[in-house]
């Protein structure tokens, strides 16, 4: 279920990127895309079993314990941080654009 939702989120994000001309809206679409991508990556490592647990080492290790795949989770941690970096740069560029053109709309900026 979440798998389909994440794919839909990716599609909605791409749709937003293609249709919006507002700088802030474009960055928001990028964020939606990234959230969808992150959920998608996590679902790849997920095991739909009752007994599967989160990949955390505890003191009482049971002998045969099934954990979900920890590698996609590590990938998502990196991807989240990278996403914040791009968002921050995008917003600072948006601020600069506002200083220069006094609008957030890409169409109203025009060629200088």
């Amino acid at each position: 279920m979440l798998l389909y939702a994440s794919v839909l989120l990716i599609v909605i994000g791409l749709y937003g990127l293609l249709t919006n001309r507002n700088v802030i809206k474009i960055i928001l679409s990028l964020n939606v895309l990234e959230i969808g991508l992150n959920i998608f990556i996590i679902t790849v490592g997920f095991l739909d079993l009752e007994e599967a647990i989160a990949p955390i080492i505890t003191l009482q290790q049971r002998a045969s314990v099934i954990v979900v795949d920890p590698l996609p989770q590590a990938l998502v941690l990196t991807a989240i941080v990278i996403g914040v970096g791009t968002t921050a740069i995008g917003l600072s560029l948006a601020k600069k654009m506002y200083d220069k053109y006094h609008t957030f709309n890409l169409d109203e900026m025009g060629e200088e």
């Binding site: 990716i10 791409l14 990127l17 700088v23 474009i26 990028l30 895309l33 990234e34 991508l37 998608f40 990556i41 790849v44 996609p72 990938l75 991807a79 791009t86 740069i89 995008g90 560029l93 948006a94 600069k96 654009m97 220069k100 890409l106 900026m109």
Partner: peptide
Amino acid sequence: DPKSTFNYLVLGTIGSSFYLLGLI
């Protein structure tokens, strides 16, 4: 020229998202 840099940023991020999707 923040406008073209922004364009670069958006396209680059979309590209790397696609790359990430492919690798996963």
